[in-house]
Simulated scan of single mutants.
Amino acid sequence: MAIILILGAGAMGSAFSFPPADLGHEVMLVGTHLDQEIIRELKKSGIHPKLKMKLPDQVQVFSHEELGAAMICQPDVIILGVSSAGVAWAVQALGPLLEQPVPILLLTKGLAVEEDRLMILPQFVAGGLHGFGIGQFTIGAVGGPCIAGELAARRDTSVTIAYPDREKFYWLNSLFKAPYYHIHYTTDLAGLEICAAMKNFYALAVGYPSGYLDMTDQLQNKAQMHNLSAGLFTQSIKEMAMLADWMEGTSENVYGLAGIGDLYVTCQDGRNSRMGKLLGSGMTYSTAKKEKMPDDTVEGAELALKIGPLLEHLFQKEILDKKKYPLARIIIDAICHDALMQIPWALF
């Protein structure tokens, strides 16, 4: 039996506790300071208020103030399920409590900016923890189409884990490969992380047609705009592949579960596609966020605000060819500059 610590008690972090708990491992779920209401409800009833499911009995629940107590047992693996904005906090919280390197897997999706450099989050976490003088950490990530509510309901789910150490991956696989949780393996950590982050970004554009349709006249044949959605979906994958290649990843994950698969499921029903629908209806991002989604974390928009200025700088310096990223530029304009979103078909 292994001891698994999950930091982040939101929907995905909590849902990730189901496979290892069902396999008989001990799971410690630690909330962040943003998860206080969730932790209180879990301690009271055992039912996660967002997942609407009771957590397995093997899951022990801790508040962020109890992280030190949870770490006393020295977990065999740590899962980061915090938001992208919470990764730096997680590094600072875990660093003083770790006595030696342990395997770490990231559920968190996002990219980091360091001066004029775009970094994947495992690089950021490894560098941050190394600063505590503990040693060199090997860090992997989980990507692919996984809706938290479906995982918590034990619906069949296929994901990809990127981990540099193949032998260690087989051990990790044994901890999480429940009958309903199907794991594929890749060494392409950069490619997987680009897909995990950018699919939220591009889902903003793929969600655009449903809002644009609402603003057009109803036709006699009730034609939809699936053609438009498919065109934007395809352009999104094309640009993700170029960005993955630029960051020394491969197309393996772009055209697999982490890319096409995850973008597909994200566009079905998620906060990013809902924001895209609002943009398609003619709203600016600031208005849509304030009036329609004030309490929602829109990961794609947050990523655009974080990396948009850097990408624009790279376009200006011709480090990246801006002609190859027309959809990315439109999304950045809409989110970072509050411009009305318009699809530049002639530039595709």
Rank of each mutant, 00 (worst) to 15 (best):
L213E: 14
V91A: 08
V254L: 06
A339M: 11
E239S: 03
I79P: 03
Q74N: 11
A9E: 03
S286I: 12
I120H: 02
D214S: 13
P122F: 13
L7D: 01
A69E: 15
E99R: 10
G140I: 15
L98K: 12
K277P: 00
T187S: 14
E239R: 00
K50N: 10
E248Q: 10
G127I: 14
V159R: 00
T287P: 05
E26R: 09
K322Q: 13
L107S: 03
V27S: 00
E318G: 03
E99I: 03
L107N: 01
R271Y: 02
S14F: 00
T297Y: 11
N253F: 03
M247Y: 06
G128S: 15
Q342N: 03
I335K: 08
K277S: 05
G259M: 14
S236Q: 02
K199I: 07
C146I: 06
A241V: 11
V254Q: 04
M225P: 05
A301N: 11
S63V: 08
F132L: 06
H226Q: 15
V77C: 06
P145W: 01
A70G: 04
V77F: 05
H48E: 03
Y285S: 11
E239P: 05
Y325M: 00
P96E: 07
M275C: 12
R40V: 05
G276E: 02
V82S: 04
M275K: 10
R117V: 03
L7F: 12
G270Y: 04
F62S: 09
S286R: 10
A15N: 00
G127D: 15
E167P: 02
P122G: 12
K289R: 15
A153Q: 15
E312M: 10
Q136P: 06
N173A: 07
G86K: 12
Q58C: 01
A288K: 09
L5Q: 00
L305H: 07
L320T: 07
A70M: 00
E150T: 09
I3H: 11
D245W: 02
K54R: 14
L34T: 09
D217S: 06
S63N: 06
M240V: 15
Q58F: 04
Y181E: 13
G140V: 15
T250N: 03
I147T: 06
S286E: 14
E312R: 14
A334T: 07
I134Y: 10
E239T: 05
Q58K: 13
R117Y: 03
